[in-house]
Amino acid sequence: MSELRVGVVGVGIMGADHAERVARQTSGARLVAVSDPDTARAEALAARLSGTAGASGAAGFGGAPGNGPVRVINDPLELIAAADVDAVILASPGFAHAEQLFACLEHGKPVLCEKPLTMDAASALQVVEAEHKVGRQLIQVGFMRRFDPEYAELKQLLDSGELGRTLLLHNVHRNQSAPPGFRSEMIVRDSMVHEVDIARWLLDAEITQITVQAPKPSSLVDDGVRDPQLAVFQLANGTMADVEVFVNFQVGYEVRCEAVAERGSATIGLGSGVFTRADGQWGGAMPADFRVRFARAYDIEVQRWVDATVRGEIDGPTAWDGYAAAAVCEAGIESLTSGRPVDVTLADKDEVLG
């Protein structure tokens, strides 16, 4: 396959960003189709990206040769089945993922699925089982932090054993603001889920118990929304992790992670760019948007997905990772409601995938 023909389902903020990335700067890929319930939005994006020139040397991967025409397919299942679509990026709402993932499996289409894999653990496990029956891995889940250079460097450091055994992981996840209707359980399922995956990845173990609690909420959030939230994870290898998630922080987008080990600690996410001292003040800029903080991670993620897909492989979080995250978040929502620790129940991986 000389060029991977990609279709994007869902062209809201994240999907449009991925469509631009494929059309403008991803080497070895071409955007051929988009689908969205908002037909006008899809048509505007398709018109803007049709015939787009590829970026020279974009993302450090040698650049893209340019994009041809992009068509709009109103039915996402029709896009998935289209003969001229080799692979799919799913950036549709989570409630639509299960049906669309089953369609990708049915048609043998590799898919990069934005989180969550599905809305609950039971349907996520069904996706894992269905993929296993196909006989090869086709699903990669969009936990892009694994591709962020800072997180990748931290993972390499911890795995090296240079600091001894890792004991604790501290996380901060703050958004400037959340969209209207972003409920308490969505903070767990759509925001905290990133820390769920990163804890499993960095600490190399499954989460066995989660406790989610909340202080008196910010006065700036809608009634009934519990924001911020504080979670504690217990992992199967005896390590622990915590995370503060605050999705209406007002200041900007901030993600930090500190690993504490036997012989030292390591911290990422302290900010980059120019640090100034002037006019009686000091500091630097904080991005307002996750796409700014993790732009490089998204670039690397999509490029590596394309490269691996052409090789017939998966190079990132798998359907099992998406299922495990869904199970932890499901237990987390229960804990937020009850105020008590909740054990995480996972299927036996060897039985499911053996």
Results as ranks from 00 to 15, higher is better:
134 V>P: 04
186 M>G: 13
270 L>N: 11
95 F>G: 13
292 V>K: 00
111 V>I: 08
308 A>T: 14
209 Q>R: 15
320 W>F: 00
337 T>M: 03
283 G>Y: 14
246 F>N: 15
219 S>L: 14
265 S>V: 00
185 E>H: 15
325 A>W: 01
316 G>A: 02
114 E>W: 08
29 A>R: 14
323 Y>P: 02
339 G>Y: 13
313 E>M: 14
77 L>Q: 08
227 D>A: 07
305 W>D: 02
207 I>W: 01
224 G>N: 09
277 R>W: 08
71 R>M: 10
116 P>W: 06
319 A>W: 12
59 A>R: 02
248 N>S: 15
128 V>W: 08
205 A>N: 12
204 D>P: 02
122 A>S: 06
333 I>M: 13
181 G>V: 10
288 A>Q: 04
120 D>Y: 03
26 T>D: 05
21 R>M: 12
156 Q>E: 13
11 V>G: 04
108 G>T: 10
101 L>K: 03
302 V>E: 04
77 L>A: 11
269 G>A: 03
293 R>F: 00
135 G>P: 07
328 V>T: 09
114 E>K: 00
293 R>L: 12
138 L>F: 01
174 R>T: 06
126 Q>T: 09
2 S>V: 03
277 R>P: 00
75 D>W: 03
199 A>T: 15
294 F>K: 06
258 E>M: 15
102 F>S: 04
352 V>E: 10
149 P>A: 12
202 L>W: 07
245 V>L: 02
200 R>N: 07
112 L>Y: 14
90 L>G: 13
162 E>A: 15
232 V>W: 10
24 R>L: 11
351 E>R: 15
141 V>L: 01
75 D>S: 15
330 E>Q: 15
43 E>Q: 12
308 A>H: 12
161 G>K: 08
345 T>F: 07
338 S>D: 07
96 A>H: 11
140 Q>P: 01
20 E>S: 09
326 A>R: 11
194 H>R: 01
216 K>D: 10
6 V>E: 04
65 P>S: 11
100 Q>V: 04
9 V>E: 00
291 R>M: 05
309 T>I: 00
56 S>T: 12
10 G>P: 01
107 H>A: 12
